[in-house]
């Protein structure tokens, strides 16, 4: 509370607490934000559509690597035929949501933090306050919701492109039979596995967006302060994504 409260643990806890309180405030403004579909669509475009290229490129390469490594590993046991299943489960349950979220934190999260931080630094948020307009409703809530909606969509696209990448290596390059590849996948993957990825991506979307808007909103209104907040967004999001991933995986298995 007083002088003793400056250790890294206490300041970390305080940060977590203020983020949680901030979440409640933002959630309270989400309904009014939903009532403005144009603004929301704009934010989904900003965070989602603008991340598409990096998400699709990464998805393709991750899928191709999965194909190569999977083939190499399975080949040692003489069971290459299950490659489709291995690639699909790896992507849908784990790599799709996690890597998409990490890329999202780096691409969209930093953009959100620096945008809101600069709005703070240039008095735009204060100006709204003085105009009796709540910046949480107008600026923060639509961006938060946009992130939460965009993340599962990006994850789905990532996984689909990844499957294509895995197929490219497994079938086109390594010569597996295409029919076997797809039918193995179809037989082994059920709705439960797909749902796991979707729930994860929703949780990651909420966590990443919350950290990004909170860091921006509370950034010190200087060039250095906004820079620091942006860095913190990436670090905190990445750690939280991996931590949440473990917790959620444990819940689903």
């Amino acid at each position: 509370m007083s002088a003793a409260g400056n250790g890294p643990l206490v300041s970390g806890l305080r940060r977590a607490g203020s983020t949680a309180l901030f979440l409640l405030q933002v959630l309270a403004q989400c309904l009014p934000a939903l009532a403005r579909p144009r603004q929301l669509a704009m934010q989904i475009y900003n965070t989602g559509a603008r991340s598409l290229v990096i998400i699709m490129m990464s998805g393709l390469f991750v899928g191709m690597v999965l194909g190569l490594q999977g083939y190499d590993l399975l080949h040692r046991f003489g069971s290459e035929v299950v490659l489709g299943q291995a690639v699909a489960l790896g992507l849908l349950k784990e790599l799709g949501p996690v890597i998409t979220a990490l890329l999202f934190a780096g691409r969209a999260g930093t953009a959100l933090t620096s945008e809101i931080g600069l709005m703070r630094a240039t008095d735009q948020l204060t100006a709204m306050e003085i105009m009796a307009v709540d910046p949480l409703r107008v600026v923060v809530a639509p961006r938060f919701l946009g992130g939460v909606i965009a993340m599962p969509l990006l994850t789905a696209i990532f996984s689909v492109v990844g499957l294509f990448g895995g197929q490219l290596v497994g079938v086109q390059q390594m010569g597996l039979d295409g029919g076997v590849f797809w039918s193995q996948m179809q037989g082994a993957v059920d709705l439960h596995d797909v749902a796991e990825g979707i729930w994860k991506s929703l949780a990651f979307g909420a966590a990443c967006s919350l950290i990004a808007v909170h860091e921006g909103f509370t950034a010190e209104p200087t060039a250095a302060g906004v820079g620091l907040a942006t860095t913190r967004t990436v670090v905190a999001s990445s750690v939280l994504i991996l931590l949440l991933d473990y917790v959620l995986t444990a819940l689903f298995i």
């Binding site: 709005m119 240039t122 008095d123 735009q124 100006a127 306050e129 003085i130 009796a132």
Partner: peptide, 14 residues
Amino acid sequence: RRRMGMLFQNGALL
């Protein structure tokens, strides 16, 4: 606040 208007030093335009 709805009854007041304020002009910021740098304008603070959105």
